[in-house]
């Protein structure tokens, strides 16, 4: 069969492969190369070695600020989203009335796009801040906590669904046996539920981590970096470097490569860390 199928390469593989080359592989390879060059269009590239990487950090403070802002934001949202999602999942797996309706409501914000979410929360947050006579562009702190609230509203329901699936996989016999042996609820939670739900935690941490780190649309719509560029995250800073002023395209591409490397590194470290804590049934 393999031999016959092989001849069908043009039909089965070629269309996807061509699209993959155009949309990903060639741009990726060019992106790596261009990060070592000075260019304004793709054709006028001049080799400059590691200069763009140096300038990414030293030309101004924007990239360092954005990196620090992104790291803080990622840590806070990963912790809060996962905590709320897990608590909601615990609540919704105890046979409360109308469980499905609650699930439907909590999950819904996840389907709304980042731009719409950003403007929606801008209205609410500015409405609240008005009582103090300011708005979200007044301080990067407001932008930071605004983004955290937005992220929690968007992602909690999604992660809750995954935690619910994880909790439903725990055999009843296990928790019941522990209860009969006199274990308290918190002992059961600590020694049975938490270890057993670890695969879901791995996935949820991975998804919240990468999504928070890569956040762009919400950042653009909610604050667009204001005040100044203080609330700009990495993705937005890279965008501004590329399209904000001419002559910085190489620096933008170098920043993008760094962005990609950090993301790949933290994803890899996180997966191996939480995977090692998973127990098999």
């Amino acid at each position: 069969m393999e031999k016959t199928l092989k001849k069908y390469f043009p039909l089965f593989l070629l269309p996807t492969l061509l699209a993959f080359l155009i949309a990903f592989l060639i741009p990726f390879g060019m992106g790596i190369y261009l990060s070592f060059t000075q260019f304004t269009t793709v054709t006028d590239a001049q080799w400059v070695g590691l200069d763009n990487y140096r300038r990414a950090f030293t030309a101004n403070q924007d990239f360092r600020n954005a990196l620090w802002f992104t790291v803080k934001f990622t840590i806070v949202s990963v912790v809060t989203v996962n905590l709320f999602a897990f608590l909601l999942a615990l609540f919704l797996t105890q046979g409360v009335r109308a469980t499905n309706l609650f699930r439907t409501v909590f999950f819904m914000p996840n389907l709304i796009g980042g731009i719409v979410l950003g403007y929606l929360w801008q209205l609410i947050i500015n409405g609240v801040l008005r009582y103090w006579g300011v708005d979200i562009t007044f301080s990067a702190n407001y932008g930071f906590w605004g983004l955290v609230v937005l992220m929690n509203w968007q992602m909690t329901g999604y992660m809750m669904i995954i935690y619910i699936a994880g909790l439903q996989n725990i055999p009843h016999a296990l928790t019941e046996a522990a209860a009969i042996d006199g274990a308290s609820y918190f002992q059961i939670l600590r020694h049975i539920i938490l270890p057993m739900v670890m695969p879901a935690t791995t996935i949820c941490t991975f998804l919240t981590l990468t999504n928070s780190f890569k956040l762009f649309d919400q950042n653009l719509a909610l604050t667009a970096g204001a005040p100044g560029k203080e609330s700009a995250m990495l993705a937005l800073d890279i965008y501004n470097t590329f399209y904000g002023r001419i002559g910085y395209e190489g620096v933008g591409q170098a920043k993008a490569v760094i962005f990609f490397l950090i993301l790949a590194l933290i994803a890899f470290v996180q997966l191996s860390l939480t995977r090692s804590k998973e127990v098999s049934q």
Partner: peptide, 10 residues
């Protein structure tokens, strides 16, 4: 795992 910003320009 590659973020969009990596390839958006090219």
């Amino acid at each position: 795992i590659v973020p969009f910003q990596m390839v958006m320009f090219t």
